[in-house]
Design a protein around this nucleic acid. Structure first.
Lengths: 200, 200
DNA sequence: CTATAAAGTCGACCGGATTCGACTTTATAG
DNA sequence: CTATAAAGTCGAATCCGGTCGACTTTATAG
């Protein structure tokens, strides 16, 4: 009857792994944490980890999920829903920027996984979706205020802004810029281009 | 005296490794080619490879450099310098798109390294620069024709378009789109948004 | 209360990238 | 022409992600 016992234990073990990941990844970094370390910390055997996650990367994404939850909630409050669109976008992205790069290595791996995942996992897509949803909301509101062209599709608008944000981040990782100020300034220029249009 | 002998041999060996990489990566793919395979093909010992490259990824970037040379040259001819800007950009990017995704795995690794490199190597920056330069040329020409706002900075314009291109590519890798046609259509929408502007 | 199939666990193993350390070659000072 | 230090080479060892297959636990049908 009760197949709930199994389900429940599975959930507990899964949490134990993610919790170990949050701890060890944060403390020692992704590369320096082995699957065996995680297993030991979670009190299970190494290969059991693979019943819960297909690959190490997947654990990383679950780890991100936890961290994101916090970051996104904290963020909602910071964005003023009636500020000009560009300010809202700038605030949103710079907050995310600070969170994502709070650990450089962490940010790099996360961005790689989100943009160019090895396999299309629901988790990667989910992370993405969260951004696109948050943006979509802001955009809908901006349309209502008559700030942007209403005929444009929210998905492509969100994607557009999101890519500009990632461009600013990439500038950091490739060494084009190095300070938060530079990233912020660059991002603002790009957002302005998008809003005002590039063509004469 | 002659410390040239050593230098010269080093260069020869380096070339041998890259040449082996071009051959084996193309034929069997990146993951399926082991360092030992490369070493054997280059006629050296496995660990000697590490005197020339810090990691496998670095060999991959050297490999890309070779391949890009060809791809970029072939491309110049295809772009009509007097077509409307959006057509030029679309042609440029779709050609690159086809080249980059001719092997899905290859494209994925390349894009990761270009956007979010583990270490800022000159190679990654160089690849990037090549794109930005090619774009800069097109943009300068477009300014002369009066097609775009002349006060905008070429670097940020190039970066903007480049990111939209990468967004389209990312859509492929994350599963938002799956055919070349869809990528092309999505890219066109994004380019249009950038050119026409998003704001009312 | 079994029998048994399904689900879960884990130690042992595998392949491949990277490191180590002993050995060989080269450049050069005297 | 040595001696020797620096540079280069490579097989062996290590480390780690991931798979395999034998073993254990759980659910359930009769």
């Amino acid at each position: 009857m009760t197949n709930g016992k199994r389900q429940q234990n599975k959930e507990i073990t899964r949490r134990a792994i993610v919790s170990a990941a949050v701890d060890l990844f944060s403390r020692n970094g992704y590369e320096k944490t082995s699957i065996e370390d995680l297993a030991k910390a979670a009190g299970i055997g190494k290969s059991t980890v693979y019943t819960y996650f297909k690959a190490k990367e997947e654990i990383f994404l679950a780890f991100c999920d936890e961290e994101f939850e916090y970051s996104f909630t904290a963020l909602r409050d910071r964005v003023d829903a009636d500020a000009p669109l560009i300010e809202q976008l700038h605030t949103l992205f710079m907050s995310q920027y600070e969170f994502v790069t709070s650990n450089r290595e962490f940010g790099r791996i996360l961005l790689r996984e989100i943009l160019f995942p090895k396999t299309v996992t629901s988790l990667a897509k989910q992370s993405n979706q969260r951004y696109l949803d948050a943006l979509g909301e802001i955009l809908t509101h901006a349309k209502e205020r008559g700030e942007i062209r209403p005929e444009l599709d929210n998905f492509f608008l969100s994607a557009h802004f999101f890519m500009l944000y990632l461009g600013a981040l990439s500038g950091l990782y490739t060494g084009y810029v190095s300070t938060t100020e530079e990233v912020g300034a660059g991002l603002r220029i790009l957002l302005n281009q998008a809003l005002q249009g590039i063509a004469l």
